[in-house]
Computed example of a mutant assay.
Amino acid sequence: MSPRGLFLTFEGIDGSGKSTQARRLAESLEAAGYDVVLTREPGGSPGAEEIRRLVLEGDPDRWSAETEILLFTAARRDHLERTIEPALNAGKIVICDRFADSTRMYQGLSRGDLRALVDQLHGLMIGREPDLTLLIDMDPEIGLSRAKGRQGTEERFEDFGPALQKRMRSGFLALADEFKNRFRVIDGNRDVDSVAVDVRETVLKVLR
């Protein structure tokens, strides 16, 4: 862990359980005496939360992939300025539910070959990667069933159906192979407690 803190992200398909694992990890680390900030994307700052409602609600075809990339990047920039960087500069552990890797997948891969555009905007406007990324790997059919079972209003991406989830799982695993130094793949096809133990041990190895 560097003097300016540790930037940790969770990634995975919809319904993979990453949000639950992010919360449980934050609680576990706080109980162990660490100073933790738990946040999410899109969102994590007032301006970014406003953009969240624009991109996660409504018809699946509400935005083009190019427009989504701009919206997600704008939200991420505000999140970085107002939440992530101040916490890291104060030496805190930042745990973020999704970050740029999700944009690389959902906008850069799912609706056209736009990965290069995502990376270009990321380099210009964000300019940093997490110190550690935990990919909660989940069977796409199970994940989609879990996600739809939540019956919330933020289901725009779930409404693209199982084909998207299968592509996203393959894409995330390829991304983990591309960025071997910062990715750790956790088997999410198990009970929540077993996954949480693996997550905690993985992070503690880095902190030690």
Results as ranks from 00 to 15, higher is better:
2 S>T: 15
3 P>N: 15
3 P>S: 12
9 T>Q: 01
23 R>M: 07
24 R>E: 10
25 L>F: 05
26 A>R: 06
27 E>M: 13
27 E>W: 01
27 E>G: 08
31 A>D: 13
33 G>Y: 14
39 T>N: 02
41 E>T: 01
42 P>R: 11
43 G>C: 07
51 I>L: 09
57 E>N: 00
58 G>E: 14
59 D>C: 00
59 D>K: 03
66 E>T: 15
69 I>N: 09
70 L>K: 06
72 F>V: 11
72 F>P: 08
77 R>T: 12
79 H>V: 06
81 E>T: 09
81 E>F: 00
82 R>N: 13
83 T>M: 12
84 I>Y: 01
85 E>N: 04
86 P>A: 06
99 F>H: 08
101 D>E: 02
102 S>F: 01
103 T>F: 07
103 T>M: 07
105 M>K: 06
107 Q>G: 13
112 G>P: 12
113 D>E: 13
116 A>G: 01
117 L>A: 10
122 H>E: 11
123 G>A: 12
128 R>T: 10
130 P>W: 02
131 D>M: 02
132 L>I: 09
137 D>F: 10
140 P>H: 03
141 E>F: 02
142 I>W: 03
148 K>L: 13
148 K>Q: 08
149 G>R: 08
150 R>F: 00
153 T>C: 00
167 R>Y: 14
167 R>H: 06
170 S>L: 13
171 G>F: 13
175 L>N: 09
175 L>R: 12
177 D>W: 01
178 E>G: 11
182 R>F: 06
183 F>P: 06
185 V>N: 03
187 D>E: 12
189 N>Y: 12
191 D>V: 14
191 D>R: 02
194 S>C: 11
197 V>I: 15
197 V>D: 00
201 E>M: 01
208 R>P: 10
